[in-house]
Design a protein around this nucleic acid. Structure first.
Lengths: 232, 232
DNA sequence: GCACGAGATACTGTATACAATCTTGTCGAC
DNA sequence: GTCGACAAGATTGTATACAGTATCTCGTGC
């Protein structure tokens, strides 16, 4: 259920697989912001040549998940306060309307899929796997875009959700994630009743709630390589 | 004034230059949808190796300006009717609000820059260079996002505007582009008066107008390879 | 003891070479 | 005459090799 896009059989198959694996690691906070992603290391880990690793890194750089620095290498991105605000502002701009139209279109199968996502979130939280819970929480939002049948918006949101993961690891304050699943459950109810207006309002509040629970006053204190965090 | 991003001194400099050149050619309709972009050809044209050409093509593929087909090569994208609708729906979702916040923030220098864009559009239209006029028309929209100071949205819009170029070449019916510059002028007025509400409404109507002036009933009749258009 | 600089090292950027796959042209069978 | 199969050519996918640049280390001078 994880590799949703693996079946799309696109070109650069190997590069895409590696990019997805790295993106997942970033999502689940196994790779901290600022971590250096050496080409030789990745090539050895995945058993391919640097050529395909570079393609994967370029893809991630395009999604702003990694920063490419000329002659220095690739690093897991460390979104600035400004970027953090922009990402959530963009989400607040797009997602409420998307939720509205998704609620209008949702079929029983869609509702069931959303319920599964929420269950999986709960399971991950119970296991204490906060990183995975956060990743699944992002998938919930993407699923809504899929239900709205707007693949263009879905692709954009996919980037925003991924970057949100990085932002949360850098700026997150509130430690309990219960509010999260509660908000998602409320959204699901609105979907089940096909109440687009309520879904829109709920989504808007959910995102505002997320943004306000971040501490954007201070510069980030990344857990990544010390040299990167300081010298840059 | 064209290569706005050239100064950003990003990694993959050569690849970016080539990607920008190709994107510009697509914008200005010098490269028709469906055109094959052979790696060897491009490598010879730009005097680099296939390595960097591939990086450029991957970048364009990520922006959905070209389709990459495994073991077949890169082709200028041919957006489907569905994609066309989605792109303009996404623009209609994002741009009005962006225009609103841009109108609230616009400085006299911003207004002057927008005026310059409109003048350049007129000049290109007078010269009969419709492709360039369309490209400049897209830049006008991007400039608004820049004024709104939302670089995340601006990057997204940049993709949408680029894809709009392809869509227009495939589905455009109305031949006179006068309505275009008129709408842009009206927007500029709203900006000059810092009337955010009016700018939002104008932008919304402008995009609806654009969408309705497309003929999305028929399958595209691209100038590219016939096999691509039919068999796929 | 500290600052500065030259050399060494390690890494990325690019080009080239080889392998795999698809397209295309030709030949043969039905 | 048409359809199918096989072979030749062309093009992409991947790996490797080389070149350029930044960083680190160690030595020298102050």
């Amino acid at each position: 259920m994880d590799k949703v896009y693996i079946a799309r059989a696109e070109p650069q198959g190997a590069a895409r697989e590696i990019a997805d694996a790295l993106a997942l690691a970033i999502h689940e906070h196994r790779l901290a912001p600022g971590t250096k992603l050496g080409e030789d290391d990745l090539a050895e880990i995945y058993g391919v040549s640097r050529t395909v690793v570079r393609a994967a890194l370029q893809r991630l750089a395009h999604d702003r998940l990694v920063d490419l620095k000329r002659n220095r290498g690739a690093f897991v991105a460390q979104p600035s306060v400004r970027e953090a605000r922009e990402v959530f502002e963009a989400r607040a701009l797009v997602e409420p309307r998307t939720a509205h139209s998704a609620a209008d279109r949702a079929t029983p199968a869609d509702i069931a899929a959303l319920q599964q996502h929420i269950d999986a979130e709960h399971a991950a939280t119970s296991e204490g796997n906060a990183g995975r819970a956060l990743y699944l929480s992002g998938l919930f939002h993407l699923e809504i875009a899929r239900i709205a049948d707007q693949s263009t918006i879905e692709a954009f949101l996919s980037q925003l959700v991924a970057r949100s993961s990085l932002i949360i690891v850098l700026y997150w304050q509130r430690r309990n994630a219960l509010c999260e699943s509660h908000a998602h459950h409320a959204l699901l109810d609105a979907f089940a009743e096909a109440d687009g207006d309520r879904a829109e309002v709920l989504m808007k509040h959910h995102l505002v709630d997320l943004l306000t629970s971040l501490d954007l006053r201070n510069a980030p204190q990344p857990a990544g390589s010390l040299k990167e965090a300081l010298g840059r």
